[in-house]
Design a protein around this nucleic acid. Structure first.
Length: 263
DNA sequence: ATGGTCGACGCTCGA
């Protein structure tokens, strides 16, 4: 079985490309981020024609997350309990950054962690708060059902180590590599989740900025991954980044990450 | 050249 995560950067702009990729690579479940697609405009038929059920949540042309699966997606959640709003408070928007479905025995989450923008930006505070709230509920799931197979997949907008960015000096004053962000990520690991793809992927990147010839120069970041609960981590037999998908004409600025799951 | 490119609710912003 294959589960993948991919920040598609607009599903309307490249639904055909994504569905073709799913079919060509024999993917069973795909967690998508940045669909940039309002509910009602999601290209469900493109997925259905290829044999995929979809769950999606969107708000205007910003953010947006979705899951496609060859099985019927069950128990869909379009946010997580306690998910913070932006701006903070009841007047803020519950952004479309988390969706979940039971895909057979596996509970898959498609997560689009807030970017943070800059370390002095309110969005950065929001990012940390969002991660803390997700960690809290994720820890509760672990306690509630220790045997559950859960994958927290998505665009985490955090490079776990210095090896996961092309030049750590470039990021000296930027988000994605700060101690606070990495500590927030480490708390998921402490809770019992594993960055299961990391040993297979090494320091390969999953994102390259469109600008400044970042891709041809391989100046990227590893910010897309899936944190797996122990019962699911036990089943992971491999993982890979499809760098070729980033080369295509009209490609997303992120490459998909694929998990190979055994019996 | 402190920008180089994308996608969107586009004459600007977020990534």
């Amino acid at each position: 079985m294959r589960i993948a995560t991919w920040n598609v950067n607009s599903i309307r702009a490249r639904s055909e490309l994504v569905v073709d990729w799913l079919t060509r690579n024999d993917i069973d479940v795909l967690a998508m981020q940045e669909t940039k697609c309002d509910n009602g405009e999601f290209p469900s038929m493109s997925f259905a024609s290829a044999g995929y059920d979809v769950a999606y949540v969107g708000s205007g042309g910003r953010n947006g997350v979705a899951i496609a699966g060859r099985m019927m997606l069950e128990d869909i959640e379009t946010s997580f309990p306690g998910q913070p709003r932006f701006p903070d408070g009841p007047g803020g928007e519950l952004e479309a950054r988390a969706i979940s479905a039971k895909c057979g025995p596996i509970r898959v989450w498609s997560l689009y962690v807030p970017n943070g923008r800059g370390v002095d930006d309110p969005h950065y505070t929001y990012k940390l708060k969002w991660l803390t709230a997700l960690r809290d509920i994720s820890a509760l799931w672990r306690v509630h059902d220790p045997a559950a197979q859960v994958c927290l997949a998505g665009d985490w907008n955090i490079a776990p180590t210095d090896a996961d960015v092309w030049d750590i000096d470039y990021f000296a004053d930027k988000t994605h590599v700060t101690d606070a962000e990495r500590n927030a990520l480490r708390e998921f690991i402490d809770t019992g989740y594993t960055d299961s793809a990391a040993p297979f992927i090494g320091d390969k990147y999953t994102f390259w900025d469109y600008t400044q010839l970042r891709f041809p120069r391989n100046e990227g970041m590893r910010i897309d991954y899936g944190l797996c609960s122990p019962a699911l981590d036990d089943r992971i037999t491999g993982a890979w980044v499809d760098r070729d998908a980033r080369k295509l004409t009209g490609a997303s600025d992120h490459a998909p990450v694929v998990f190979e799951i055994g019996i």
